[in-house]
């Protein structure tokens, strides 16, 4: 698929640049939540796993796909929840204190 190869590389290039620009601005204060959030986002590999697990094209692919769904889903759920749990703790000084 030569036409889509070009497009895919294009997308990758642009996304990397956007990533560098956006992430450079994240305050070092939040680097841990940043890592858990990007981790949750990259668990979007769940969509690939879902298609394989639900495709049931061969026994091997169904088994591997299902394990992949488990792993990716653990990251989706866990990643977003723990990121929010951490961010909830970051508070400014209460005025008057």
């Amino acid at each position: 698929m030569p036409s889509s190869l070009e497009g895919a590389l294009f997308v990758f290039l642009l996304a990397t640049f956007v990533g560098f620009e956006v992430i450079r601005r994240v305050s070092p204060l939040l680097h841990t939540p940043l890592m858990s959030l990007t981790n949750a986002i990259s668990a979007i590999s769940l969509v690939g796993s879902i298609v394989i697990a639900g495709g049931e094209k061969s026994q091997l692919s169904t088994v591997l796909g299902t394990i992949a769904v488990v792993c990716a889903m653990a990251n989706v759920v866990g990643g977003f929840v723990i990121t929010d749990r951490m961010l909830k703790m970051f508070k400014k000084r209460e005025p008057g204190k």
Partner: peptide, 13 residues
């Protein structure tokens, strides 16, 4: 493309 974007964001981070 969505996987490429998300992976690139994670990778660059």
């Amino acid at each position: 493309n969505l996987l490429i974007v998300a992976g690139a964001l994670d990778g660059s981070s």
